[in-house]
């Protein structure tokens, strides 16, 4: 399958996964295209479309939680940011994705205390 086709296939599959979770693809289409392209390349190299903005450790339990869409495994953290870490997905009500900041996990956990 060529890259463009795979990208569209990922888009179609992932859209069905994130919808019920209250997320959608970011309105920043340039960012979405770039990230999906990275995922297609990562999938070719490593076998799965891992998050382009989080590092793999080689431990299956850790790495499988970074396969896109990784929202289910980081739900509270992402809900607090209204976006996922790489920004591919945002909450359904978001129209201006640039207004959303990356909040580190540590900061998020401290804010909960």
């Amino acid at each position: 399958m060529d890259s463009e086709k795979r990208k569209e296939k990922l888009r179609a599959m992932f859209s069905k996964v994130v919808g019920p979770l209250g997320y959608k693809f970011s309105p920043d289409t340039e960012l979405v295209d770039f990230l999906l392209e990275q995922e297609v390349n990562i999938e070719k190299e490593k076998g799965s479309p891992f998050c382009p903005c989080q590092g793999l450790t080689g431990e299956r339990e850790h790495d499988m939680k970074l396969v896109c869409p990784c929202i289910p495994f980081h739900r509270e953290h992402y809900d607090a940011m209204k976006r996922c870490w790489c920004g591919l997905y945002v909450h359904k009500d978001i129209e201006d994705p640039d207004s959303l900041m990356q909040i580190s996990l540590q900061e998020f956990l401290e804010s909960k205390k």
Partner: peptide, 20 residues
């Protein structure tokens, strides 16, 4: 077997997010 997503065969729920 692909990415270790787990489902309850009785109701189909994905264990990490039951909306799926």
């Amino acid at each position: 077997g692909c990415h270790d997503w787990k489902f309850d065969i009785r109701n189909g729920e994905f264990l990490d997010a039951i909306e799926i």
